[in-house]
């Protein structure tokens, strides 16, 4: 059983295809990086899989079943900038939102939900900040709150949209520890990632994307200079840096 199986997925804005004929599967219990230049459609890919934006064509299966958000087997970490952090609420409340799918209509969170939310905050090292107003958290702390919220969803497959952007080294470390813990529990995590330097350290499996799939597979096999060239096209100065990184490893 593949945790994620995408077939012939196409997404178009107006008449322009943003994602063209995407096909891939990912192995269970691994950390998977989704890599590609700006405008390659990385975030769009996640959103299309989750049904947040309409697909022009194609089929997405999660554990061999047509994906339905109601099944609650998928957790999602959106980009931090996608919400207004001046919203009147505290960190614990945001994490509790991860439980809303489990709680059901009209009901309030139970003691168990509260415990799970506290536990999730603890896992990202934020338990002291439970009562903190979210606008008073640093960017890295906000990112960790988002991660804790996804943990509280208690899913089998996680999708994370650029969790490493704009966070300090401590948060980056905390996130990567958490990803490894999720992996050790047999969960599958797909991460949109920008920083080519860390790809080999962080991910077992890579999907190289630029509107269509360039290649996907185990990181050692597919994260090569040639494939990067193909993915990043003419952006040479950037690629020279990339070359250094690849050769260093």
């Amino acid at each position: 059983m593949n945790p994620v199986d995408v077939k012939n997925l196409t997404v178009a804005y107006e008449k322009k295809a943003v994602l063209k004929d995407i096909n891939f599967t990912v192995p269970e219990g691994q950390l998977i990086g989704i890599i590609g230049p700006n405008g390659a459609g990385k975030s769009t890919l996640i959103k299309a899989i989750l049904g947040l934006i309409p697909k022009a064509a194609g089929d997405v299966k999660i554990y061999d079943k047509q994906y339905r958000a109601k099944d609650r087997i998928v957790g999602y970490v959106p980009q931090r900038g996608s919400v207004d952090w001046d919203f009147p609420t505290n960190a614990l409340d945001v994490v509790l939102m991860g439980r809303y799918g489990h709680i059901g209509w009209f009901k309030r969170p139970s003691k168990k939900d509260l415990n799970i939310a506290h536990e999730s905050l603890k896992k990202v090292g934020m338990e002291e900040y439970a009562d903190r107003q979210i606008s008073q958290l640093s960017g890295g702390q906000q990112q960790r709150v988002f991660l804790a919220r996804a943990l509280a969803q208690d899913a089998k497959v996680y999708f994370m949209d650029e969790p490493f952007v704009g966070v300090d080294a401590a948060t980056e470390r905390a996130i990567i520890d958490l990803l490894n813990e999720l992996k050790s529990q047999g969960k599958t995590v797909l991460v949109v990632h920008h920083d080519l330097q860390t790809v080999k350290d962080y991910f077992d499996h890579c999907i190289l994307l630029n509107v269509s799939i360039i290649t996907s597979g185990p990181t050692e096999e597919v994260f090569t200079m040639e494939n990067l060239h193909q993915t990043y096209g003419g952006k040479l100065s950037f690629l020279d840096k990339g070359q250094m990184m690849v050769e260093q490893k």
Partner: peptide, 12 residues
């Protein structure tokens, strides 16, 4: 209100 995309992801 806080995060419409996440709400959709929850199946609401």
């Amino acid at each position: 209100t806080f995060d419409p995309e996440f709400a959709k992801g929850l199946g609401l």
